[in-house]
Design a binder for these strands. Structure first.
Lengths: 140, 140
DNA sequence: CAGTAGTTTGGAGTTTTTCCAAACTATTGA
DNA sequence: TCAATAGTTTGGAAAAACTCCAAACTACTG
């Protein structure tokens, strides 16, 4: 009966990574993961939580976002100075960035082909390759 | 006699884009453009200027970096939350980012081949495509 | 149910960047 | 050459995003 345990999926995820399912974490996780792929900033998520009547401090939102990122449940995307976005899509993919309104949009991994890339310098390894397609207003 | 006009190149560049060659701008432009490709933060450039005995305020450094960027003499690179780098290389190229020490390194444009990219959404145009190869510590 | 280890919190602090109005200066043209 | 003016610079205050901290709180363990 899924209706009896509406938070089950999110709850299990928290347990799976070894985080206590506190009221705050559970609520933030639901906001993040129960509505498809999202790109949110800390401030945004904090506002959403307050609007959903979940009392959480901004510090906790930052803590949680960083924990989730470290544990591989989120991916941090940096496209603008002075603001980080957290992406709930952790599969291999890239981004459109709309410079006019600051929105991010996923580009599925298979829509981009990197046919050639240089070798990483000796002693280093590639952690990730980010492709950001920066978009401007209407074509002129 | 190039030795008589050591700032000539930089001075001409400022004139070419319609900026007055003030003492501060000239000094910053020399620090930026007279030593090959560089990636500097505002704070870094400010320190360099002071060490070179050029009195400049941090506000002017920011103003200047943004003017240069707007005029196409610099390119802003955002790889880390909370800090912008300005790249004196404005040709088509990409970046290695060393996550451990925060350094940036150019990847010449021809070393990367994007064989496939999605169409930009209707009403938008691609301003730029950034490829950032994020590198981690030694291979393990 | 008590102990404890993990979590949350408000508020202060830090860092980076922007803003502003006053002072300054390069350029223009008379 | 000089005054007018338009563009620049400046320090300091302020904004914005994020981090830190010690005290209070709470989920788990036995």
């Amino acid at each position: 009966m899924p209706t009896n345990r509406p938070f089950a999926r999110v709850l299990d995820r928290l347990k799976a990574v070894g985080l206590r399912p506190t009221r705050q974490r559970l609520a933030l996780a639901r906001l993040l993961f129960e509505q498809g792929d999202r790109h949110v900033s800390a401030e945004q998520l904090h506002d959403e939580a307050l609007q959903a009547n979940v009392r959480v401090s901004l510090a906790t939102v930052y803590n949680t976002l960083h924990q989730f990122t470290t544990l591989g449940m989120l991916r941090e995307v940096v496209v603008e100075p002075g603001r980080s976005y957290f992406d709930t899509n952790i599969s291999d993919h890239h981004h459109f960035f709309f410079e006019d309104d600051g929105q991010l949009q996923d580009i599925p991994g298979e829509r981009v082909e990197l046919a050639r890339l240089p070798e990483p310098p000796a002693g280093t390894q590639v952690r990730r390759v980010d492709v950001i397609v920066r978009l401007g207003g209407s074509k002129s």
